[in-house]
Simulated assay, not measured.
Amino acid sequence: MSPRGVAIPDLRERLFTAAERVVAREGTSALTSRAVTTEAGVAKGALHAHFAGLDEFVGELILDRYARTARQAAELPSLVGRDTVAGNLLTVALALMTSVDPAVVALAMTRPAASLHTRQGLEAGAPGFSAIQDAVTAYLDAERRLGRLPAAADTATTALALVGTVHHLLMTHTMTRTPGGPEPREITERLVTLLVGAPPPHDAPAP
């Protein structure tokens, strides 16, 4: 436990990762401010000292993970002309798929204040799905200029289809998954194949 009054580097990230571990191990019902601070090994009041409450904390966790994936998507231009278009898109799509634990998303959806905080953050300009979609569109435009996509390719619609589908899977997988049904990764691979061609082998390592 960190001593009282001692600043903790990267406290937000420490609390966020602690919350993800609690949810993964014990389920959403176990996520309390006390559980998070205990898991993080920080003072009991640390969460409330930096967030208005658990709802704001959950909303900020989701915004942070979306922003992290948006930063990764922004690096797509560095991949132009390298590997395969499908492989590059799949890497970003899977990063988005795993950006937030679906159980945490499900938790936020059952807490209206947390969902509202996330929505307001995105509306205020926090990086989210729109930023990721724009980055994918810019990447596809560059690949089209190189001739690695057909000249008539509708890059904006392709990006919308990819990011929109991943968003849907992320929001609904925990609550509507059918036992024995296809996994989100499999669905994403099929979509990439449909949009731009064959993706890497199915057993390619996830990012």
Rank of each mutant, 00 (worst) to 15 (best):
L90W: 04
L90D: 14
L90F: 10
T91C: 10
V92Q: 11
L94E: 14
L94R: 09
M97L: 15
M97T: 10
T98P: 00
P102Q: 06
P102S: 07
V105R: 14
A106F: 06
A108K: 11
A108C: 08
M109E: 15
M109Q: 15
T110H: 12
S115V: 01
L116C: 00
H117R: 15
Q120C: 02
Q120Y: 11
G121F: 12
E123Q: 14
E123R: 15
A124P: 00
G125A: 09
G125D: 03
G128W: 11
A131G: 07
I132G: 07
Q133Y: 01
Q133N: 11
Q133V: 12
V136A: 02
T137E: 12
A138L: 02
Y139V: 09
Y139R: 07
L140T: 06
L140I: 07
D141V: 13
A142K: 10
R144K: 12
L146A: 12
G147Q: 06
G147E: 05
P150D: 11
P150Y: 04
A152T: 13
A153F: 13
A153D: 04
A153G: 05
T155Q: 04
A156Q: 02
T157Y: 09
T158H: 04
L160D: 02
A161V: 03
A161L: 10
L162P: 08
V163C: 03
G164T: 08
V166Y: 11
L170K: 12
T172K: 05
H173V: 15
M175D: 14
T176L: 13
R177C: 04
T178Q: 15
T178H: 06
G180T: 00
G180I: 04
G180A: 03
P182G: 01
E183M: 07
E183T: 10
E183V: 01
P184L: 02
P184R: 11
T188M: 14
E189R: 15
R190G: 05
L191F: 03
V192C: 05
T193R: 15
T193K: 07
G197Q: 09
G197P: 12
A198I: 08
A198N: 09
P201K: 10
H202F: 12
